[in-house]
């Protein structure tokens, strides 16, 4: 009999795990709360650090899925019952799914920028999030102000909802810095006349080719970087925006008028994750993400045998890290059932 594995979440993490498991001969059920699979990457235009289209990665992941992967969209988890060696998952459509292992790949959500009221999201029309900018690019549109004008100057704000005790998120979201640099280049690429200013606290170019991208942004695209965190944003009668930050390198407060503000919104745990974790009694970290069996050596397993964690359910992660993590999870599941 084929072992059946249930995967909750069909983003990069869930689908990669599903693909590898299917290849290894498991029967896989993937549960997705949205109406279609793909998660956040589906909404993204191009990926850092090399700005390759996100579609390519999506296509690669989907190609691996074969007939032994059962995709169920538009369902959420209402309950999980452990019965002997099996997990019975009750779905929102009143169906149940039974499996021998459960993989939580519920990923993340983007920080709700409304919570930083002083940044003016939802108040001023020309304040948008990095995700909204990505949608504009994805749809092949030109970046314009809400009034349809071509912007002369754009401000990119780092760390919105990350590293901020005031919104309850102390952690770094890891991927926004490089996303900000990528988007700065993309704006300059699309609108060579438009100045781009990035307001940052630290630029965390931690992974391979990230620093090079930063270098490129300075060398080739003349993106401006100001070391200071935005304190507040206000609007002029012509709908342009005034940014206030300290230019910490000159030690003086700085005011700047820009046409569009882009907020690099951070990564927060999906509320669904907390719900499922409390059903199962899985430990949650102070940051709201799930805790694995051991942060170094058992990062894919949990305190409950048969339940696995993969991808951004454990905290912010890049696509490349998520894919690697998903394969590791699949491999662990494979060795467990094949050995037994």
């Amino acid at each position: 009999m084929k072992q059946r594995i249930i995967i909750i979440g069909s983003g990069v993490a869930g689908l990669t795990t599903a693909g590898v498991l299917a290849e290894n001969g498991f029967e896989v059920v993937v549960l997705e709360k949205e109406s279609r699979i793909g998660g956040h990457v589906r909404k993204w235009d191009r990926l850092f650090p090399n700005r390759r289209p996100a579609n390519e990665v999506m296509e690669f992941i989907e190609k691996v899925l074969n007939s032994s992967v059962d995709l169920r969209c538009g369902v959420t988890v209402n309950g999980v019952i452990r019965h002997d060696e099996e997990f019975i998952v009750l779905l929102s459509n009143n169906e149940t799914v039974t499996g021998h292992a459960l993989v939580l790949a519920t990923g993340f959500q983007l920080f709700d920028a409304h919570k930083k009221e002083e940044y003016g999201y939802g108040i001023y029309d020309n304040v948008i999030t990095s995700a909204e900018l990505e949608t504009i690019f994805k749809e092949g549109k030109q970046l314009t102000t809400n009034e349809g004008k071509t912007p002369h100057r754009v401000g990119i704000i780092h760390c919105v909802g990350s590293r901020d005790e005031k919104v309850g998120n102390l952690y770094c979201s890891k991927v926004c810095c490089v996303t900000g640099v990528k988007q700065a280049i993309e704006i300059r690429e699309q609108l060579p006349e438009c100045e781009v200013f990035s307001f940052y606290m630290d630029l965390r170019m931690y992974d391979r080719h990230f620093e090079e991208l930063y270098y490129e942004a300075q060398q080739q695209w003349a993106v401006n970087f100001i070391r200071g965190r935005l304190s507040e944003c206000s609007e002029n009668p012509d709908h342009t925006l005034i940014l206030k930050a300290e230019d910490t390198l000159t030690g003086r407060p700085l005011k700047m008028t820009v046409d569009i503000v882009i907020l690099l919104v951070g990564i927060i745990p999906d509320p669904e994750t907390g719900k499922i974790a409390s059903m199962l009694g899985l430990p949650i970290g102070t940051d709201g993400f799930l805790m694995s069996g051991d942060e170094h050596i058992k990062d894919n397993t949990t305190t409950i045998p048969g339940i696995y964690l993969t991808g951004a359910v454990k905290g912010p992660a890049s696509i490349v890290n998520t894919i690697a993590d998903a394969r590791a999870t699949a491999q662990q599941i494979t060795s467990r059932f094949m050995a037994g």
Binding site: E117, E118, G120, I123, Y124, E232, C233, S234, E235
Partner: peptide, 9 residues
């Protein structure tokens, strides 16, 4: 109130 611009608006 400058940190709650909705009130000012």
């Amino acid at each position: 109130t400058h940190l709650t611009p909705t009130i000012i608006r």
